[in-house]
């Protein structure tokens, strides 16, 4: 059972700093931790990226395989997002099938990519209703120090931008892979920004010590034209309508900053 004494002391420390407009690691309230990005680091994957967000470390690998479309979207390729909270990343993670934290992480990242229509899935259809390409996005958490959602969404987008797509031809109704690659068609660049609320103050990019004492969090994913594509509120606290609109303003500004780091054009 987690001890309850340390979090109470920690809560005071974290909250006191935040009420003075500071954070224990020296950041301002709306500052991200340093983002480091490496791409194309796993050659067996069609695309890959590793993001360090402060001490949080996430690796995303992308595999593309031949498969069948879903019956309600027969003319579109398939997108699948999965997250693994490897026990090597934290003493809080245990081996076994994905728990609810991993499921939520994968689904929130999935929603951002899917709803922004980041991948041109219509171009991944080969024979409508029969043969399409399936894009598997696998999130691997290598070190956990808070805000997995933003780090994973960043790594997933960076990996997609770095993903190579097979050249293929149709022979007797079968897909045949040809040598050479094209780029995976990526139309939008969704950026997830997570805001935590601690004692009615909003902060960006909560680190683990802040996550442990936060009342609630709000993640908004914005497309490149600034529209809202996905939202997730987490944690057993609340936001006022006023705070949600305030958070939306912060997200607008921050998503632009992060997009510049990830998307070079």
């Amino acid at each position: 059972m987690p001890s309850i004494i340390i979090p109470i002391m920690q809560q005071k420390q974290v909250a006191q700093a935040i009420s003075k407009g500071k954070r224990l690691d020296g950041r301002g309230l709306t500052d991200y931790r340093e983002v480091q990005l490496e791409t194309g680091i796993v050659s067996s994957a069609e695309g890959s990226a590793r993001v360090h967000l402060g001490k949080t470390d996430v690796l995303v690998g992308i595999k593309i395989e031949r498969g069948q479309p879903f019956s309600d979207t027969p003319d579109k390729g398939v997108l699948t997002v999965n997250a693994e909270l490897s026990p090597l990343a934290s003493s809080m993670f245990e081996p076994g099938p994905p728990g609810v934290q991993a499921i939520e992480l994968a689904r929130v990242v999935d929603r951002g990519i899917r709803e922004s229509e980041a991948i041109a899935v219509e171009k991944l259809c080969v024979i409508p209703g029969k043969k399409v390409f399936v894009v598997f996005i696998d999130i691997y958490v290598l070190n956990y120090d808070g805000n997995l959602i933003d780090a994973s969404a960043m790594a997933a987008l960076a990996a997609l931008l770095n993903t190579k797509m097979f050249k293929y031809e149709l022979k007797d109704g079968e897909i045949e892979i040809k040598p050479g690659y094209t780029k995976l068609p990526v139309k939008d660049h969704p950026i997830a920004v997570t805001i935590a609320k601690i004692n009615d103050i909003l902060i960006v990019d909560p680190a683990l010590d802040e996550e442990q004492v936060m009342d609630a969090r709000l993640t908004m994913t914005l497309g490149k034209d600034g529209r809202v594509c996905a939202i997730q509120k987490g944690g057993s606290g609340h936001f006022t309508a006023q705070q949600i609109l305030e958070a939306a303003k912060i997200v607008q500004e921050k998503s632009g900053e992060i997009r510049k780091l990830l998307v070079k054009d």
């Binding site: 929603r111 922004s116 529209r227 594509c229 997730q232 936001f239 949600i244 939306a248």
Partner: peptide
């Protein structure tokens, strides 16, 4: 006046 669940999917301007 406390919002305890907020989710969204799709596309909405601010």
């Amino acid at each position: 006046n406390a919002i305890t669940l907020l989710q969204m999917d799709g596309g909405l301007a601010m």
